[in-house]
Amino acid sequence: MAIREIEASLITRKIAEICTKANFELGQDALMALKQSCETEVSPLGRQALSILIENASIAREEKIPLCQDCGTAVIFVELGQDVHISGGEFNTAVLEGVRQGYCEGYLRKSMVKNPFGKRENTRDNTPPVVHCEIVPGSELKIMVLPKGGGAENMSRIAMLKPGDGIEEISELVVETVRQAGGAPCPPLVIGVGIGATFEKAAMMAKKVLGRKLDEPNPDTSLVEFEQHVLERVNRLGIGPLGTGGSTTALRVHAASYPCHIASLPVAVNLQCHSCRHAEVVI
């Protein structure tokens, strides 16, 4: 297999584009999920909130302003084909520069601060992003940006459950996380659940599944029943759209699992607000 050259400057350009696209354009899958829940929501205030969110999405798309003032931490998932060579610059710099250009040119909010427990000084260009890179077969470079707002991220959690725990304990953890979060993470939520692996990989899985389209079933069919079960329980909590009561507390539960140590059962719950933003590009 011949090595394919990809210019670093192209990576920068493409990342800048998907940063703005993700912040201006809510995906059709997320929009459809909001429209469907607007029809089934039992609370009048909840229906009002959902219809405002639907209108918000069309204003953002048409007028090219961010769906939400919190344009997030730029979380970037990279799948780098092993037959790709990046030329004309360093990969990490190209990614960082893409985020900087996207956030500055798109009038997106810059929310990153350095010295997080000290002066908390804004970096003024929303860098650095948080980048997760995976080497995969092939000669393509796939990049997904998932702007992650602080409100929902703050309500996320990770727990190290016991090996003897099962679907009920895992479900209870997710439901309790959502209950305690209430209206703060901007429901209706997409709930990412990472089950197994290790402390950090469970959290990573819980984040990455937030990029799965809402109309795509889980490719791991063994998790479909769990996702459905948790979704039903969460939607019985009564929290509703934006926490002001109702039957739509979450739109979807997305789970992923991975083998783990005989002593462990890590479970991470990553909450995503209704503004389920992500955009991807394949180079």
Partner: peptide, 8 residues
């Protein structure tokens, strides 16, 4: 309270 995530 107002509508979270409806900034536009």
């Amino acid at each position: 309270v107002t509508f979270g995530g409806a900034g536009a």
